[in-house]
């Protein structure tokens, strides 16, 4: 893959005609689906002035909820980075009975309404649930604490990592690993210097997707979080709370703050990826 940092020419040569219709379609489609709703969100918080916006987003409770939403999303994606890679590896490299079934099960969180996932998790991890009752005697509470938020975000984020990494692993011939072995690489060296660089871009993509999804996740979290202000209240819930008070500007303020933070986080991830690729090419 060639990466060019110079400005792209407006019209890339292609054997297929239709650059302008394709561009026109893309722009109008994106406008309808993404750009216009986002513009509306950005326009909304200012009806009571910039000071009010700042006042809203620096409220300790809003800050606590942003910290929880972004912190838990980052942590959950990091956990999924490791567990998802292992899962993808197992599904690609080994053949075992039930592999296809497991493979299909990875997608279940995509298909399930998030509320259903949330209720199922809350039932399992509540102090009287199957898993929760194992931890309760140890004094560990999972459901209705920030730990519950983390569990829900791990659950919704897993398929993003697995599905991003899987095709790359599939393309990576086992022979490459064998070649590394015959050239004298130790197991750890093979993983670190042969496999990881190859799957790194896919891992970053999966991480970004899982992170973005987890930051905005509402349905599955709300049933297991406990929703206590300053403790287990996620930012999307604060938006709903503002809306239920008919405070549209306040809701949009929290929304805009999330948008800005997400943008910064995703930008940082992408810059990190770019630097990593450059280093790899040296």
């Amino acid at each position: 893959m060639a990466f060019s940092l110079s400005l792209p020419r407006l019209r890339e040569p292609s054997v297929l005609p239709g650059f302008w219709p394709a561009l026109g379609f893309t722009v109008s489609y994106l406008s309808l689906i993404v750009l216009i709703p986002l513009a509306a969100l950005i326009a909304r918080p200012w009806e009571h002035g910039g000071a009010e916006f700042l006042h809203t987003v620096t409220d300790p409770r809003v800050l606590a909820s942003l910290r929880l939403s972004f912190g838990a999303a980052f942590l959950a994606s990091a956990i999924n980075l490791v567990m998802g890679l292992i899962t993808a590896w197992a599904l690609v490299r080994y053949d075992f009975p039930g592999r296809r079934l497991l493979d299909a099960a990875v997608d279940v969180p995509f298909a399930l309404p998030t509320a259903v996932a949330g209720i199922a998790l809350a039932t399992l991890y509540a102090p009287n649930g199957w898993i929760g009752s194992l931890f309760a005697p140890l004094g560990v509470k999972i459901a209705y604490t920030p730990l519950g938020v983390l569990i829900a975000l791990v659950a919704v984020g897993l398929p993003f990592i697995v599905r991003s990494v899987q095709p790359v692993l599939q393309d990576l011939d086992a022979e490459v690993e064998e070649a590394a072995r015959t050239l004298g690489a130790r197991r750890w060296q093979t993983i670190r210097q042969v496999i990881l660089p190859a799957v790194a871009p896919a891992l970053v993509t999966g991480f970004s997707l899982a992170f973005a999804r987890a930051v905005g996740e509402y349905g599955s979290v709300i049933f297991i979080a406990g929703n206590m202000p300053m403790k287990s209240e996620i930012a999307p819930l604060l938006i709903i709370i503002e809306l239920s008070q008919f405070n549209y500007a306040g809701a949009a303020s929290v929304g805009l703050a999330m948008l800005i933070l997400s943008f910064i986080a995703l930008l940082a991830i992408n810059i990190g990826q770019l630097l990593f690729l450059r280093r790899g090419k040296r």
């Binding site: 209705y144 709300i222 049933f223 406990g226 929703n227 206590m228 202000p229 819930l237 709903i240």
Partner: peptide, 11 residues
């Protein structure tokens, strides 16, 4: 003394 705040009465 309230450990969980659900969004509605049924919750």
């Amino acid at each position: 003394h309230v450990p969980v705040l659900d969004s509605g009465a049924r919750g």
